[in-house]
């Protein structure tokens, strides 16, 4: 009499489970999955690259802005803020383009200017910083008034000094 039939039965069950796993795996792993480049750093779902590349860009750079705002662009390029992109102060182009009435990006408050030009120890020493508004105005030969804005003397688009 043969006494291994129960072992064969268990083996069959085990093999069936393992085979089931690999069949399931065949169905569930995306087609583009595989090694692209090397296995260490390139093992992934290939379609993922394109999906991420397709996301929309919200910040587009000043060229887009110039299409409608030629005069401001020319003014901006002539001043000391020429190296600062429109979107740095005005927010991203896409938000503005979605709703051109939205002027939220237009801020001439003193805080908006001091975000960059307030005096902070960690800022580079040669970067223009204002510690005391009154002193700054008087040093420049002006008459200080309470609540005075920077734009009273400086053009935000095109500061000359």
């Amino acid at each position: 009499m043969n006494h291994t039939s129960h072992i064969i039965r268990f083996a069959v069950v085990l093999v069936a489970v393992i085979a089931g796993f690999f069949i399931l795996r065949g169905f569930l792993v995306p087609d583009s999955f595989g090694v692209q480049g090397d296995y260490k750093y390139g093992y992934h779902r290939g379609a993922s690259d394109a999906e991420q590349a397709a996301l929309p860009a919200l910040y587009t750079g000043s060229k887009k802005c110039a299409q409608c705002h030629a005069a401001e662009t020319a003014e901006w390029q002539a001043g000391k803020h020429a190296g600062v992109e429109c979107e740095t102060c005005h927010g991203n182009w896409q938000a503005h383009n979605n709703n051109t009435k939205d002027k939220a990006g237009k801020d001439s408050s003193i805080e908006a200017c001091l975000l960059c030009h307030g005096e902070v120890e960690a800022r580079p020493a040669d970067f223009p910083q204002i510690a005391d508004m009154k002193k700054h105005v008087e040093d420049g030969g002006g008459a200080y008034e309470k609540g005075m804005l920077c734009v009273a003397c400086h053009s935000a688009h095109s500061p000359q000094q």
Partner: peptide, 19 residues
Amino acid sequence: LALGSMDDSEEALHIDHKI
């Protein structure tokens, strides 16, 4: 649970023990 195999003969149990 027995997977339908009722073999509890001496020989079968001996194999089981070895496994």
